[in-house]
Write a protein that binds this DNA or RNA. Structure first.
Lengths: 127, 127
DNA sequence: CACTTGTTTCGACATACTTCTAAGTTGACA
DNA sequence: TGTCAACTTAGAAGTATGTCGAAACAAGTG
């Protein structure tokens, strides 16, 4: 499951072919395969710590944050933060890179947009 | 069927007071309280069966579905479906009503819209 | 090289979750 | 009233998750 830029990203929300892959779940029934694929993504953000981590990273200046910027904002230990970052990374929601002593994380906006589109009440047809 | 809007609904996505409650998490950092409140909602949809249940209910004609319409679509037993429906209901994502022999479920669209807005890349300022 | 700081991995523990079978409840109908 | 069908609740088993402390790994500095 090599992270890097994952292929999931191009399913951002604008369904270029009108495929069911991005239609809001209120528009047409999710099939089993789609549900099996989406559930782990929602599971990744279904934790208060991970939700805040995601938000902190996304809002941090430059769009990226080093682990040391994040650890201080929580009451949990470093290893726990590291574990949660790993979960988010394995889901494809964030990516990271080591630069010298520090490891920087940034959000993969396409995946987030896809989840938003799935839950969206209607296709936001704004070009 | 008129779907009895619950109080949560007015947090739909258009933040009437510019409150942090509805700003996308990529815009400003989620605080601990908000994260604690949102995580259970995401957890409720972080399961393939519940994701499909939600979708099946939302897409069913009339916007509502009886349990017997849902059970057949899954490989799990009736009690398991009932359990998942309860989880969705307790999260506020769906509501139900007994009418005679059958119990009908419908989606609370406001809650879904709120989650979508939280994940959304930017406030969709379309009036 | 040794030492310090930043970050991840490992192993363990308690808690929570998914699913099942069995039994209970509610309402329709003969 | 008795019986059947639709659902829900209760209890149990197996698995997954969140958290920690200890230890390992990585990179800079003296």
């Amino acid at each position: 499951m090599s992270k890097q830029v994952s292929p999931i990203v191009d399913l951002a929300g604008t369904d270029q072919a009108g495929q069911a892959c991005c239609a809001p779940l209120v528009c047409e029934p999710l099939n089993a395969a789609e549900a099996e694929e989406l559930a782990p993504l929602f599971k990744a953000i279904a934790d208060p710590v991970r939700l805040r981590l995601l938000s902190l990273i996304a809002c941090h200046e430059g769009g990226e944050a080093c682990v040391c910027d994040l650890t201080g904002a929580f009451e949990v230990t470093g290893p726990t933060i590291s574990h949660h970052l790993k979960v988010l990374r394995q889901a494809g929601l964030i990516d990271c890179e080591r630069r010298g002593t520090w490891v920087y994380y940034w959000v993969n906006p396409g995946v987030l947009a896809r989840l938003s589109a799935i839950l969206g009440p209607r296709v936001t047809a704004m070009t």
